[in-house]
Structure formats: structure tokens, C-alpha cells
Design a binder for these strands. Structure first.
Lengths: 167, 167
DNA sequence: CTAAAGTAGTTAGCAACGCTAACTAGCCAC
DNA sequence: GTGGCTAGTTAGCGTTGCTAACTACTTTAG
């Protein structure tokens, strides 16, 4: 098994293989998280949690802004906000300057839930993480940051999609 | 932005925070991958791709074994196999010894598709990965390995991490 | 000032994927 | 054989993503 701290894998890292591998592991991990989150308690699904986190972090924002931040389509954002609102986790306010936009904001309850989620819902993952060495956790932290970076910059992606028409 | 420029995690990394962060980034990455894969061409969804990869790697196996490997329920495996079979990517054979079980195997076409997928469908990810430094890619490789380990059963994990005793 | 164009949000409907519950079919123990 | 186990399937549900099309408001042009 590779020791993450030692760059003992110098040459043989062809992109396609790493891409494949990342694909698989990310898909499987996401699935696993979804499974876990469901059973733990009366908590939110990963999707709603991620959205709530964004709303929390980015302050009051419009559904469109949420869609952009989460890389989802506006209709999806609409539904997500509706669900969160239904649970009393976010509230909406009309923009006085522009009657079209509505500003979504996290509520006190929402914030409290986020806090609870951070400490409790991640129990599964956190427990697993605790079995790793500090160096390994560092690796994951760095990887998370890299992925975050990869997720940004929609330019290349958008142009790719535009080029791929036939279907 | 490469070598010495990642002052990542000099301070302690509390588990809950890392867990949260991993959660979010994994969920979002998975979503992104799903979006990309759909539009690029006549390719498979991430779920089907992952399943096909497992069938390819683990040789002929039963639907139950697939379910276990992919951490899904048997009915889900049934549907996935049906879809793959529909596309001619896998074939089934009855076990002569046990009339209940059916053995699923990847076909030549399936193998060819896997090959194509590895080189083509990951284009999006691979392209992004190419913007990283070798060291960063190494980090992701190590992270993928860690996540693979974390995905395994607690029992299996425990035995494997025998070398890396948590404190 | 009114008409056209653009933008924010929503609604409606579709497909993928995961689940549980319940059924069928084959195997084995008695 | 009958009863119980296991493998696989079918049926049905909920979530989450999408696109297309609609409404409502704003902005711009004439």
C-alpha cells in the first residue's frame, strides 16, 4: 500500500487511469454517503446539506446564484429551496428593487442544523477518518482542495458541452 | 501554484471539518461527473460504468456478488445487469451446478467500451487533471486509494489498517 | 408610452438510481 | 416430500438531476 506522504509513485501516473479511478471512487463514495445519511436520523440528504451549506456560507442569495454555486440548473435550485423552506431551514425575502428576484437566507434553525450535521451526521465518515494517520488525513484535505479547484472554472466544460451536439 | 505554494493544513485538521468538506466535494464532484458523462456521447452513466468496471475486473460474477462489490442492493444489481445486457455489454450464463445463480460476464463489446471509456469519457476529468502538477496528481492518487480503503467494510478496513494504528 | 426583448423564477414532465417489500425458483436438511 | 434457506426478480416508492415551456417582472427601443 502506498504511503501517501512518500512520493513513491513518481512516474507511472497516466491521466486516463487516474481519471478512471477518481471517477469510480467518487461515484461510490457519494453513493455510500447517501446511504449512510439516510439511515442516521432525521437529517438531510447530501444534496440538501450541500445546498444549505452554500446558503449558509454565501449569505442571502438568489436561487439562480445558488444554482450557479452548486452547479445545478435553476429549476433544481427552485425545488431544493422549496424543500429547505418546507423544513424551515431557509427563508425567502423579496428584493424591493427587483420584483423578480427572491433572496434566500438560512434561518436560525438551519444554522443550528448545520452545526448538528457537522458534528453528528458526518459521524460515519469521521469515524472512518479517525482510522487514518494524520498524514493520510492531510492527503485527503489536500485532495479535497484540489477537487474544489477542479470543480470551478466552468469555462472549459461549458465549451465542451456546447461542442457535443448530436444525440 | 505548484510546489511550495500549498500551505495546506499546517494546523491540526479536526475530523468533523474534514468530513464535512469531503462530503461536500464528493457530492458535488459526483454530480458534475454525472452531468458531463451524459452529454458527451453515447456513453454509460457513472453507475453503469462503475458496475461494468467491476464486472470486468472481477471476472464472471453473480448479481449478488456485484451488489456486494458495488455496495448496492440486489434488486439494484438486477436492474443494472439488465441494462448492461440490453446494451450487449455483458452476458449471462447459468451455473450448471446451481440453477438459481446466473453468472454475469463482460462481453467483447463491453471490454471495448471500457477501453474507450477510459480514454475518452474521462476526457473532462483528464483534461482538468492535466492542469495539475504531477505532485498534485499524486495527491489525488493517494486520496483515491484512501477513499477506496474507507469504502470497504469496517471489518476489512480494520484488518487492512493494522499497519497504521490510529494513535 | 407602448411594444419587444431579456431575465428570474416556477411548473410540468422525464429519466436515472437508490431503496424496501414481496414474489418465484431452485437447493438442501430432515 | 415438506419446510426452510438462498438467488434472483418484480413492483412500487422517493430523491435528484435534467429540459422545455410558462409567468412575471424589468429593461430597452421606437
Amino acid at each position: 500500500m502506498a504511503t501517501p506522504e512518500t512520493p513513491r509513485t513518481p512516474p507511472p501516473t497516466p491521466d486516463p487511469e487516474l481519471a478512471s479511478r477518481l471517477r469510480l471512487v467518487v461515484v461510490r463514495t457519494a453513493r455510500r454517503l447517501r446511504q449512510e445519511s439516510g439511515g442516521v436520523g432525521p437529517e438531510l440528504s447530501p444534496t440538501l446539506t450541500a445546498a444549505l451549506a452554500t446558503i449558509d456560507r454565501c449569505g442571502p442569495l438568489t436561487p439562480s446564484a445558488l444554482a450557479e454555486a452548486e452547479r445545478i440548473q435553476r429549476p433544481t435550485a427552485t425545488r431544493i429551496v422549496a424543500r429547505l423552506e418546507q423544513h424551515g431551514l431557509v427563508s425567502r425575502a423579496s428584493d424591493p428593487d427587483d420584483g423578480r428576484v427572491s433572496l434566500v437566507e438560512i434561518t436560525r434553525e438551519g444554522r443550528a442544523l448545520m452545526k448538528r450535521i457537522r458534528s453528528r451526521k458526518n459521524e460515519y465518515l469521521a469515524k472512518r477518518l479517525r482510522t487514518l494517520t494524520p498524514q493520510e488525513r492531510e492527503t485527503l484535505t489536500a485532495a479535497a482542495e484540489l477537487l474544489e479547484r477542479l470543480l470551478e472554472d466552468p469555462a472549459a466544460t461549458a465549451s465542451q458541452k456546447a461542442a457535443a451536439v448530436p444525440r
